[in-house]
Design a protein around this nucleic acid. Structure first.
Lengths: 115, 115
DNA sequence: GGTCTTCGTTACGCTACCGTATCGGTTCCC
DNA sequence: GGGAACCGATACGGTAGCGTAACGAAGACC
């Protein structure tokens, strides 16, 4: 079921969510970090550094660094893949799920307030 | 006319737009810079450094720096206010308008592709 | 006219992210 | 078993944003 919007609604929605995100979060994530986080939580696992790098079109160190940062925030975890010990499997956390849930609520609330 | 979404739609939309934005933009804006840009283009002028800082809940140097960066990108311009020469009025540019128009298109297209 | 306030900007030291190149560890494959 | 390929992490120099503090310019006020 597609979601239809007018240009005004689309930009208004984006505006409202961005504004509130900036106002709330003292330490905001980078756009890239945000994209990585959503990829991890909205696309079925498993997720690897290499795979995320390819999906986002960035280099591997970008992913490693982002996972370091978000790991310290408790938003993701890394576990060595025992089947192929070269790989690292990125796993979700409860805090990360809550974080995204709040973001979803913010988007919904912003959409409801339009006009 | 409110825009109603399910949690899945909200996060899916955010995910798709973030992903595409990261993939396209080589030099991505900060979340704060993005919020500033949208505030300038979606809220009626005039816009000042002080006003934007208050709206976003950040310090004035943050605004100054963001305007420096976005000015170099051609997304905004600054003009001294002749009525009160202490103020600086932030003005829109054609390039900035096009930039936001493309973003709006991206949001709409992403919404249409959901599910 | 002299102070006091209000602007936006700049200075400074710090932190975080960037891209490139390389590394150690692991698997593959002959 | 040994070299090649692969994976993620690290090193390094550079750049950009951050917060705090201060600055110069311009208006306000008595």
């Amino acid at each position: 079921m597609p979601l239809d919007m007018t240009p005004s609604q689309a930009l208004g929605l984006w505006h409202a969510v961005m504004l509130e995100t900036v106002r709330q979060d003292r330490r905001d994530l980078t756009m890239r970090q945000f994209a990585i986080l959503m990829e991890i939580y909205l696309v079925p696992p498993p997720h690897t550094v290499r795979g995320l790098a390819a999906t986002l079109g960035v280099t591997k160190p970008v992913i490693t660094r982002a996972l370091d940062t978000m790991g310290e925030m408790g938003l993701v975890t890394r576990v060595r893949d025992e089947r192929d010990r070269r790989n690292v499997v990125i796993r979700r956390t409860v805090d990360g799920a809550l974080y995204l849930e709040r973001l979803g609520d913010l988007v919904i609330a912003s959409g409801r307030k339009l006009d």
